[in-house]
Each structure stands twice: as structure tokens, then as C-alpha cells.
Design a protein around this nucleic acid. Structure first.
Lengths: 231, 231
DNA sequence: CTGGATCCCTCACGATACTG
DNA sequence: CAGTATCGTGAGGGATCCAG
């Protein structure tokens, strides 16, 4: 005879705790990466697939339903003629932003070299810009950058302590940084390498002033030193 | 014929992104709750089991190994006569603290009623105290509280903007709050209910001044209003 | 083409028993 | 006390299929 233990108990931690509950909402696999991509604005199902190439579609469906159910994501049907469906963060979901940026900064410090089939996405790179942006160092500064990392092109407009990142090129950018490898930028942001090193070994080709390059690295950086990871 | 796809590729998101990497480290099930419990100091395997009653021991083993491997947790054998093993956070792991507190505050706002077999742990309650503590409201204040929630007893010593939480009772506490239900405190911290309501309906029995009760609620609270969750 | 649903396989998780 | 061993189940991974 089969004992009915808890009838259809969804996976839960069984703790009455804010953190445990948060993890039940956004702790499932892919969930926070989904939120990351939605931080940049409403997206369609297919857009999300493009940003998360390795997510199975059934998992994407499931996560969107769960996040919608939890009040993190809202599913909206576009009005006219589009007749398309977009997913967007609710107010509540948008409040994860600061947490994701911090978690991203924490994780980037042990990121190491990219694996053979690690990819860089536009959304990932824009997150990196937002996560490493130091408003206090951008006070009174007005400048703009374009970053080309392989096929990924993003830009950033800095204006007196504020940052407006975006995808695609930016005409008239004060500095263009061109890189072939997806891990060319990380050592610069973490302080492991300086602009001189990067230019010398050819991982970064700056189009613009060297001073502008240094200003970029001043405005965008990860505060603390990289952690030492034992083998 | 079988195609060799990626030989022993561990579960990865395939993105060169700080957030994705962070989630590969601490995004597995139970990992962040483990870190939460270790935030309170070194613990033995069995202590961790007590704090996380529903974690299978093999999963606990696996997580500890993974976190150790990732440089988040350090396994240390106690010197003399104990001959015991403790796990503790590394510097790097300890830097997750602010993130966990924020995530806890985010999650508590949609926590709702406890499920039938939701439990409250001492560690969970201490996390709640730390997460809801508002240093700016504790400036120049020196007081102490003891909380009894069912069998869980914790205390907090507030001294001019600093908080020292601990487990167990506190002799000479300025205020003792006694509750039978594990969800008696949450509505007070989120502002859904006031001290008057709680005393009237008997969910909280304060031993001490009403003014002290109000001071407690001023020092400990979740800033924003609870989110509206659609059915 | 978008926006998914379905199938099948694998492996991580969950429960429990067992060992140094 | 501090885990390892075993085994069943279900969530995730990957490919394909289908409706509007």
C-alpha cells in the first residue's frame, strides 16, 4: 500500500523564511537568467530563446508560467496589429535588479577563462556594463562608448552619474573598444590587467584616445580584488 | 552510433557571464540556504542537518563539496581534542551576505501564510532579524530584545546602529516578545499590522513596555509595501 | 514565422539504509 | 558523528512536432 505523503507537494524547502521563499520563486534553474534578460525590457518568447540558447523550450514555458504565477513576470498581449505576446517584469520582479547586479559582480570575480562553447550574449554584456558602472566616478562626466566583442555590439552613454546602456553600435561614440575574444574585457574590469597590457597583447583595440580608454576603466570596474580559488 | 556530444559537461548555462557563473556556484538547490546557515559561524555536518531538516544527507555532502571546490566554503578539522570537522564560509563566501539579506527581504514580502509543515529555524529567524534591521533607526539607541516563537528563541542586542543577534534567551532583555504562531511576526515587520492589532488578537504577547514594542518595530522592518500577487 | 506543446532520455534530487 | 551507498522519481535537456 502506498502512503500518501503530502499530495502533490511542489518542491519546497519547508521553511517559513523569506530567503527560502525567494528561492522557491526564482531559485529554479534558468529563472534568474530569465529575469536578467527581462530587465532590459519586454521580450517575446522567441527573443528569450535567442538570449538563452541552451534553455529547452518546455523549461522556458514552465519558468514563465511559474514566474507569472508568482507575480514576478507579466504576460501581455500587444494591442494592435502585432498580435504578439510579450513578457515583462512586474514592479516586484524589477526589484530583483540590484540583487542580480550584485550577484553578477560576485560571480564575475571567479569567472576565469571561457569554456569551449561559452557564449556571450548582448543581454549579458549589458548586464555587465550596468553591474560594473560606478556612478560616483561618473559625476559630471558626459561621454559615450561602443563595445564590440566578437559579433556582440553594445554601447553605453554616460551622463553625469547616469548610465544608459543599449544594444548595437553608437554613432559618434567617444571611444570604441574592439575585441575578438569574449574574455578580453573581464581582466580589465577586475583590475587584473591594465589598458597598457591589453593594447600590447592585442586583446583590445581601442579606437580613440588612450585617456578615454582609461576613463572608461575608471567608470566601469569591479570594486574588490578577485578571490583566490583553491585548486 | 552514439555521438559524443560534450563529454562529461557539468550542468552549465553556457554563458560567459558573471551572473550565470554565480548561479553555477550557488544556484543549485539548497546551496544558498547552506550559505545562510554558515553566515552565523562555523558548523558541523550534523548542525547543518538540524538547520535544514529536509535536506538529504547525500545532497548536503555534494553541496558542501561543490561549495568548497568553488572557494565559498572551507572545510576545517578542529585542532585538539575535538577531532571534529567544521565548515565555514571563506571570505569570498561571506561576501554573499548582503545579497542573501536582500533576497530574504524580497522574498518575505510574498511569504504569505505558512504551509502545514513549514518550520521556523533559529538560523532563519536570526537571518530575519539581520535582514530587517535598520541601522539608521538604531542610532544612539541601546536596547535588547528576546523573541520566543514557539520553541525557537533568539535575541538581539542593539547598540547605536549595530546589531548583535544570537540564539537562545537573553537575561535582562528590555523586551520579550512571545508568539505561538510562526507567522505572528511577519505582518508586523512588513507593516501589514500594527502592535495594537497583534496584542489585541493575541498573536503576540509582549513582556515589557508598549513603547519598547513600538521601538522594536521601528528598528526592525521591511522597507517597502508588500507586493500585490495576482491569484 | 511565432509561440509554444510533446516525447524520450538522462541525471539530479529525495528518501532511506548503512558504514567507519 | 560524519558521512557513503543504493535506488526510485521527477525535473531538466534536447529534438521534434504542431497550431495560429
Amino acid at each position: 500500500m502506498r502512503r500518501i505523503v503530502g499530495m502533490a507537494r511542489k518542491r519546497t524547502y519547508g521553511q517559513y523564511c523569506g530567503l527560502a521563499h525567494a528561492l522557491e520563486i526564482v531559485g529554479e534553474r534558468w529563472a534568474l537568467l530569465l529575469v536578467r534578460d527581462l530587465m532590459l525590457g519586454p521580450k517575446r518568447f522567441t527573443d528569450l530563446r535567442v538570449g538563452l540558447p541552451r534553455i529547452p523550450t518546455n523549461v522556458l514555458s514552465a519558468r514563465l508560467k511559474e514566474l507569472e504565477q508568482a507575480g514576478v513576470v507579466r504576460r501581455r498581449t500587444l494591442p494592435r496589429p502585432a498580435a504578439s505576446v510579450v513578457y515583462e517584469l512586474t514592479e516586484y520582479g524589477a526589484e530583483l535588479e540590484e540583487i542580480l547586479l550584485r550577484l553578477g559582480r560576485w560571480g564575475v570575480r571567479t569567472l576565469g577563462e571561457p569554456g569551449p562553447d561559452d557564449i556571450l550574449t548582448v543581454d549579458g554584456e549589458i548586464l555587465a556594463l550596468r553591474a560594473t558602472f560606478r556612478p560616483e566616478r561618473a559625476r559630471g562626466i558626459r561621454t559615450s562608448f561602443e563595445l564590440r566583442i566578437g559579433a556582440v555590439v553594445v554601447h553605453a552613454i554616460v551622463d553625469d552619474g547616469t548610465l544608459k546602456p543599449g544594444e548595437g553600435p553608437l554613432a559618434g561614440a567617444d571611444l570604441v573598444l574592439e575585441m575578438a575574444e569574449i574574455d578580453a574585457l573581464r581582466p580589465l574590469l577586475t583590475g587584473e590587467a591594465g589598458p597598457g597590457d591589453a593594447i600590447e597583447n592585442g586583446t583590445v583595440r581601442p579606437h580613440g584616445d588612450l585617456a578615454e580608454f582609461e576613463r572608461f576603466l575608471d567608470i566601469f570596474s569591479v570594486p574588490t580584488a578577485p578571490a583566490v580559488v583553491p585548486a
